[in-house]
């Protein structure tokens, strides 16, 4: 018993170090003074953060990624909430099939989704890139919304809705006054997870960005192909700060286990 715990705690400790160290190194290199990334650093500067905000690709990409992530997450919630309500509260023949259709964007490889959408939406339908990109990210977010909200709805006693009907509220008002306030946490968790995944996405975004439509992750990817300076470290640190901030919100209001 003891030896097993000792062995697993040694492995666990090393694994945790391996998980943290690379990211910690990125943080350190963002302050280095040399023109190419080196570790350990010589000197200390904020120059690369300054440089980062001079790069239109990064600044615009950051804005655009924010906008797309917020709209796509909201769309996914707008479509997902009624669907989950129907899937968990109505008697539906072959409920599992419908559930799987709603989860299907998570079953098809993202890069395949990106390619298929590009062919059909951009080329055949002639939709603007921005709209196609939004659709791609909406599809990306939908399974997270469906999964988290289904768990939230199943935890909620169906009788409380009936109790509201009994004291005189119709089903629509009951939905807004009773159901929504009680799945608020799941909605928040679904939003955060959707946002992060949309904001970080590359495989779908890859096919639908262009000179007029910069997204942050693909901008970094492009930048890395030609440059190897600590600006990338600096932008990485900014991304980590965003992640950390969202995790703090999640931890404070929901508990982190809501996100997994």
């Amino acid at each position: 018993m003891k030896s097993k715990i000792r062995f697993s705690s040694i492995v666990g400790f090393i694994v945790l170090l391996l998980l943290i160290l690379p990211l910690a190194m990125v943080v350190v290199t963002s302050f280095g003074t040399e023109a190419t990334i080196s570790f350990p650093i010589k000197g200390f500067t904020f120059e690369w953060y300054h440089n980062l905000f001079q790069q239109p690709d990064f600044v615009d990409g950051m804005k655009m990624s924010f906008i797309v992530a917020i709209i796509a997450s909201c769309l996914a919630l707008l479509v997902g909430i009624p669907a989950v309500y129907a899937l968990t509260r109505f008697q539906i023949h072959r409920r599992n099939w419908f559930q799987n259709i709603f989860l299907s964007p998570a079953l098809i490889p993202e890069i395949v989704i990106g390619f298929a959408l590009y062919q059909t939406l951009v080329i055949s339908f002639g939709l603007p890139l921005f709209i196609s990109l939004l659709i791609g990210h909406f599809l990306l977010c939908l399974p997270y919304v469906i999964r988290l909200l289904t768990a939230g709805m199943l935890d909620l006693d169906k009788s409380i809705e009936e109790a509201a009907w009994m004291v005189g509220y119709n089903k629509v008002i009951t939905f807004f006054k009773i159901v929504i306030p009680n799945i608020k946490q799941s909605i928040m968790a679904a939003f955060i997870l959707s946002f992060i995944n949309s904001f970080n996405n590359i495989p779908i975004t890859l096919f639908m960005n262009g000179p007029s439509l910069n997204m942050l992750p693909t901008s970094i990817l492009n930048y890395l192909e030609n440059n190897y300076d600590p600006t990338v470290s600096a932008v990485s640190v900014i991304l980590m700060i965003i992640t950390a901030a969202l995790m703090m919100i999640a931890e404070k209001y929901l508990g982190l286990n809501k996100l997994v």
């Binding site: 998980l19 690379p22 990485s236």
Partner: peptide, 23 residues
């Protein structure tokens, strides 16, 4: 420890791979 494990999942893949280019 849960936070340490969860943090990389939610961090951009470019960042995580970039760290290994450095290494």
């Amino acid at each position: 420890i849960s936070i340490i494990v969860l943090f990389p999942i939610l961090t951009n893949a470019v960042v995580r791979n970039f760290a290994w280019i450095m290494i």
